[in-house]
Design a protein around this nucleic acid. Structure first.
Lengths: 236, 236
DNA sequence: TTACAAAACCTGTATATACAAGTTATACTG
DNA sequence: CAGTATAACTTGTATATACAGGTTTTGTAA
């Protein structure tokens, strides 16, 4: 029973998701929550701030915390989410095909992006099938320093699960860039892109907990199957 | 001199942006910052959490706060930023052309999105020119309830500036969705899209401080001029 | 010198208090 | 009854203390 404010956050978030607390209604006040959860007001406030950051509530000074409509953005493609997690949360019938898995040649420009010194880089291509159509090509690159062994089986299941469970590494944050590019020969060969001339590409630099650069990824989507949903707060 | 933690946040953020504090170096410890800014540790921690959320630092328990490389994501298209703010921060030569400004017909499906009751809806189309090319079409819709008057001059300058300065409204948050769509006849008529068949569309529902739905926007970008940059933290 | 235990740092969590600032309901005054 | 001032709520900011948990340095013992 540690991290009380996370427990409170999860409890309230689940109550909102399960419609126990409805959109456009007010949460109990901070003082009430303090006695409900038998804790201090500061601890309640930490939980409420997490809820606010993640789009569950809107705090209004003097009034209270209003529950927001989580339906409208229940497709959490923002943040850092693996394909397996995404497919599971959406109940999609998906399949992953590993089309390549090998160390990169020393001349590969990815070596500049990952800034490894001495270490080799794993490169893997995975095609994602949704309802029978090959619509996503994921190109992942890891330094041997953090991921010494990578098998086809791991790539087929979930690399992130392997990294976090087996290797005990903790993902911290990522810089992401979304652009639209013309089809490469590789895209044409691996994906079902008849009638399309472009793909949406999400390029990510992923860092560990200790701020060490860990992975470079390109996720290439057929335009009709691409959707990115975000919750943003106005700054300043 | 109020909101001390925001002042500390802004001071540290500016020191990082101006390279006074370099990437991969450690910030002074929380205790040191406490005496530097002559405040309490909790206040320093509030500032550090803001810096962490916005991608300036990575906190590592037991070690300290590492400065991150803000160069890599200095293109802040995420969050809620107006075109004018964006063009200014990037020093782009831009021009805005207002192509329409009127109340919508009652049959327009936008009336369902904005959930206004009784009020009319302002609709305006604006074409954005970057270095002489018409590459972005912004379609904005506001309820008369919040924006009673809208002139061509305001639309040409900056609607957000008008809303926040003149009308005294405060933008709170937004739900955003990015998709790729085929060109409409309108796109073809208003934009320079020779050689392209699709546009990237950012659809946003924008809410005020008090969680009231305020605006619906579609920002339609020629694919080669579209770029979305995001900083994301791994949740859970 | 090496190995390991302890101390001295660091950040993270939990609690308490005080007052400022915004909103709403109440009660009083004209 | 209407209008307004006040009281009673709400959340926001600032401060203090205590201890838990992680990392690094120090110092001691073999």
């Amino acid at each position: 029973m540690k991290k009380k404010y996370v427990a409170i956050y999860e409890d309230i978030a689940s109550k909102i998701e399960s419609k126990e607390w409805l959109a456009n209604e007010m949460l109990p006040s901070e003082n009430e929550l303090t006695s409900i959860y038998e804790t201090s007001r500061e601890t309640v406030r930490k939980a409420l701030n997490l809820l606010s950051q993640n789009g569950y509530i809107q705090k209004i000074q003097g009034k209270g915390s209003m529950v927001l409509d989580v339906q409208k953005f229940s497709f959490p493609v923002s943040g850092i989410v693996s394909f397996k997690e995404l497919a599971q949360s959406l109940n999609l019938k998906s399949k992953t095909i590993v089309t390549s898995l090998a160390y990169l040649n020393k001349e590969n420009p990815i070596y500049n992006k990952l800034e490894v010194d001495g270490y080799k880089i794993w490169g893997t291509n995975r095609v994602r099938e949704l309802s029978g159509e090959k619509v996503i090509l994921d190109k992942d690159y890891f330094s041997e320093e953090f991921v010494p062994i990578l098998t086809e089986e791991i790539c087929e299941k979930s690399i992130y699960e392997y990294i976090e469970r087996e290797l005990g590494l903790t993902i911290g944050f990522a810089h992401k860039e979304i652009v639209v590019e013309n089809l490469t020969e590789e895209d044409k060969a691996l994906l079902d892109v008849d009638g399309y001339s472009m793909v949406v590409v999400i390029k990510s630099l992923v860092y560990l907990d200790d701020a060490k650069l860990f992975q470079y990824t390109e996720s290439r989507h057929r335009p009709d199957k691409f959707r990115f949903i975000d919750f943003a707060r106005r700054v300043k």
